[in-house]
């Protein structure tokens, strides 16, 4: 696995390896968020997912999220690995590890990271349902981009 803190991979993710990247003497807390492939969404059954990324830009955007976290939580260290390609039910799609001296910051910074991934990192998933396929748009359904572009904080 890559030694870089911010990685897109087409191989299975090792939780242990991502977590090890942020373990250090200054840390008293480590949070790991693990995003897995869900079988049922609103009663619809997923067979498998296909993730695609604009890899070079996606890794830059993950780095940017790391910088944003450093501004908000200066003592945090973050590592993010996102997998692409075909993923089956319960496969790990993303692992985010954050270490901080105290636990509250580790929880908050980790949640911030996953929310930002869903806003700015160019990764897409294609659902392969029992009865067809569909590229998933904005799953947060909070961003309509009425002007056709991200604005304000999304560009920060």
């Amino acid at each position: 696995m890559s030694t870089s803190l911010f990685t897109i991979t087409d191989k299975p993710i090792s939780i242990e390896e991502v977590v090890q990247k942020v373990i250090r003497p200054e840390a008293g807390a480590v949070t790991a968020f693990i995003g897995t492939v869900r079988e049922f969404t609103n009663g619809k059954r997923t067979l498998f997912l296909q993730y695609e990324a604009y890899v070079s830009m996606a890794e830059k955007m993950l780095e940017q999220i790391g910088k944003e976290i450093s501004e908000r939580w200066p003592e945090a260290k973050v590592a993010i690995t996102h997998r692409i390609g075909r993923l089956d039910i319960s496969d790990l799609a993303v692992v985010i590890a954050v270490s901080t001296p105290h636990r509250k910051d580790a929880y908050e910074a980790n949640q911030y990271a996953i929310e930002r991934i869903k806003q700015i990192v160019p990764i897409w998933k294609k659902e392969h349902w029992e009865d067809g396929t569909e590229w998933v748009g904005n799953q947060l359904e909070t961003k309509a981009y009425p002007t056709g572009k991200p604005e304000g904080e999304d560009l920060a």
């Binding site: 604009y54 996102h82 993303v94 869903k118 998933k125 748009g137 799953q139 961003k143 572009k149």
Partner: peptide
């Protein structure tokens, strides 16, 4: 590889990526 505004003028050699609403995570 940087998000751009609609009014930006293209330059020779630019790589322009069209990015539908993302769905990672």
């Amino acid at each position: 590889e940087e998000y751009a505004q609609e009014g930006q003028l293209l330059q020779p050699g630019d790589t322009i990526a069209f990015i539908p609403p993302v769905s990672g995570g």
